[in-house]
Design a protein around this nucleic acid. Structure first.
Lengths: 119, 119
DNA sequence: CCCGTTGTGTAGACACCCTACATGTAGGCT
DNA sequence: AGCCTACATGTAGGGTGTCTACACAACGGG
């Protein structure tokens, strides 16, 4: 997966995996991989700063917890975050529609015509 | 359209509008707007450098032409560009599939349940 | 005792898109 | 004549979000 392609969609992904239940960073990364069928391998250096960014903008809130001697910072969606997620979803639809309509091959564009089409 | 969302998809867009016929930069920008139903307003400062990048990597070739006193640099797909376009299309499918499967709302995620579901 | 897994985090590099500007021709309007 | 819009190409510099690489730390198994 081209790293640049993720640009601007990270927030949507994070908000989406947190919609059902609060999770900590490490679990979020695993959830992204699992939900995408292994296609998404987001490094920690991307996720942790993004989570802090989303907390700073009020879309997430976090609490510390200790489980089995390990310290976790668990993030959950705020009300603002839920609204943001809806916006991201609609933006995603618009985005894919726009790009898709440009990318979709037009009839006659193929360099090797399949049909006869002669005269 | 969030500028960051376009990141990494510009090449695919340019290659795609050039698939059917060679075009010059200005016409490419108009074609992108038209094909996307007005959703894509890509500034010249994005398109011209991107076209040169694609020419440098061998996916495009260009010739100068003069039409009505105006000088145009007309770009066309190379064979390498056509192969690249196929790759970009398949990458786009993978990308939307991966993001889509994460973004798709799960049953039970809604904060306000519509059904009763009690007991 | 080392190593893999779990877990959080920062620093710096890099890539690419954007804003803003520079330059020039053609044609219409006043 | 002067001005404005459309057409047409291009560069410089800024911003910002993702990545690579690293640091730290606790746990459990071999």
């Amino acid at each position: 997966m081209n790293p640049d392609a993720l640009r601007g969609h990270m927030d949507a992904l994070l908000l989406s995996v947190l919609e059902a239940e609060p999770l900590h960073g490490y679990a979020i990364i695993e959830a992204l991989q699992e939900r995408s069928g292994g296609a998404l391998s987001v490094p920690t250096g991307t996720v942790y700063p993004a989570l802090r960014r989303l907390e700073r903008t009020g879309h997430l809130a976090s609490e510390w917890a200790t489980v089995g001697g390990r310290k976790r910072r668990t993030y959950r969606l705020t009300e603002s975050g839920r609204r943001q997620l809806e916006g991201e979803r609609s933006a995603w639809r618009d985005f894919t529609t726009a790009i898709g309509s440009v990318l979709r091959p037009r009839p006659g564009d193929a360099r090797a015509e399949t049909g006869p089409l002669r005269s």
